[in-house]
Amino acid sequence: MIPFVDLKTQYLSIKDEIDTAVWKVLDSTQFVLGNEVTAFEEEFAAYCDADYGIAVNTGTSALHLALLAAGIGPGDEVITVPFTFVATVAAIDYTGAKAVFVDIDPTSYTIDVTQIEKTITERTKAILPVHLYGQPADMEPILEIARRYGLTVIEDAAQAHRAEYKGRRIGSIGDIGCFSFYPGKNLGAYGEGGIVVTSNPEYARTMRMLRDWGQERKYHHVLKGYNYRMDGIQGAILRVKLRHLDKWTDVRRSHAALYDKLLANSGVTTPTVMPYSHHVYHIYAVRSPQRDALQQKLHEQGIQTGIHYPIPVHLLAAYQGLGYKAGDFPNSELVASEELSLPMCAELSEAQIATVSESVKEGIKAL
């Protein structure tokens, strides 16, 4: 079997470092927040070229706190895309605000910046671009629009650790950046985790309180907050893995280049890297009109794949209340019907990539 991701092999490659870090936390008994989390916050914020990092329990919590810190609440609107993981929209909903969708660009799969301005109303308070699959959204036009209309820009960077836009690290380009450390991410915890980065001290102060029951010091609750704290063990693990992220990212990009070469003229559409983008390939996404049949062929060959994502958020049953219908966002709907995620992790071998690529070509021919 060729796995979609190989967390066990990755763990074994850094086992001594991880085990030492975990035992250090167990010995310290700093199980919630603590010194390891604080150190990780500082290290990851610096890695993103941001001044502050606020570590939390999930990427969803990161998005929620970012929106709250920006003052988003009931009656407000936040512009984002329907082609994303549901957490992007759920976090907007948690604040009482409404998600207003803009379709994706059919080449980059990120927000179509030419469609943003016409969706702005007097209730719009923020733009929330998603750096999907590890490819940055086109940030300069987004920032220019935001400046003209006085809007906050919150980056959903859950899939974009180490990605860059025109040489700038993702997460520090907008006002606030939000990352997930779900285990399968390019930088993954051994459980759940997330972080918010910003260079705005007031946003940082607010989010730091909100993640810990709204208290600035113990039992002095300034705000109505949440229990969104990061565990000490996860902070320690992420510190270890952050030291390897550059190397792992280089390998992912090398794997993607090999896929590109082997899948040329194969009958599937391979990813397009935009000229402004340093793509980090959280997902290596190909497209085929016969996606489901191709996925079945690969499954029969022992190749794990994924679909990210089969239903755009505007068509999910849970979000019918937003008032959208099939046909409203044709690019999102088309990509959702064709996208197939091939195995992608630093632990894959070139031989495995060659096997996957050959199986894709054979699968397409057989359809």
Rank of each mutant, 00 (worst) to 15 (best):
Q296V: 05
R287E: 15
V280D: 05
M274H: 02
L258F: 13
Y284D: 12
L298R: 05
D260A: 04
H282N: 15
M274Q: 11
A293S: 07
K261G: 00
Q295S: 11
T272K: 14
Q301T: 02
R291L: 05
V273F: 02
V268Y: 12
T272E: 13
L294E: 14
L262E: 01
H299A: 14
G302I: 13
A264M: 08
Y276F: 14
R287Q: 15
H299N: 13
N265A: 06
Y259Q: 05
L294W: 14
L294R: 07
N265I: 00
A285W: 06
E300V: 02
A264L: 13
P289D: 11
H279I: 03
S277L: 01
T270C: 09
T269W: 01
L262Y: 02
Y281R: 01
Q290N: 10
L258M: 12
P271H: 04
V268G: 09
L258N: 06
Y259C: 06
L263D: 03
T270R: 14
R291N: 10
H279D: 12
I283P: 08
P271Q: 05
Q295V: 06
G267M: 08
G267E: 05
Y281D: 09
Y259T: 06
K261Q: 12
T272P: 00
V286P: 03
G267F: 09
Y284V: 11
H299S: 13
T272C: 07
I283H: 15
L262S: 01
R287D: 14
V280N: 03
A285K: 09
N265W: 00
V280R: 00
S288N: 10
D260Q: 08
I283R: 09
K297A: 12
A285H: 07
L262F: 03
M274R: 04
Y284W: 14
D260R: 05
Q296C: 04
H279Q: 08
Q290I: 07
V286R: 04
T270K: 11
H279T: 02
E300Q: 14
Y281C: 06
Y281P: 08
A293H: 00
P289Y: 10
Y281F: 15
L294Y: 12
Q301M: 10
M274C: 05
P275D: 13
P275F: 13
H279S: 02
A293C: 00
K261S: 12
Q301K: 14
Y284G: 10
S288Y: 10
V286F: 02
T270G: 02
H299Q: 15
A293P: 00
P271A: 03
H278Y: 15
D260V: 02
S277H: 02
Q290H: 13
G267T: 09
Q290W: 04
D292F: 10
L263S: 04
Q301H: 14
K261T: 11
H299F: 15
K261L: 04
T272M: 08
P289M: 09
Y276H: 12
L298D: 07
L262D: 00
Y259A: 06
L298H: 05
P289T: 12
H282E: 15
A285Q: 11
H279F: 15
T269N: 03
G302S: 11
Y284T: 12
L263N: 06
S266D: 03
T269S: 07
H282C: 14
G267Y: 10
V268E: 09
Q295K: 11
P275Y: 13
S288E: 08
S266F: 01
L298F: 08
H299T: 12
H282T: 15
S266R: 01
M274V: 01
V280A: 01
V286K: 03
Y259E: 06
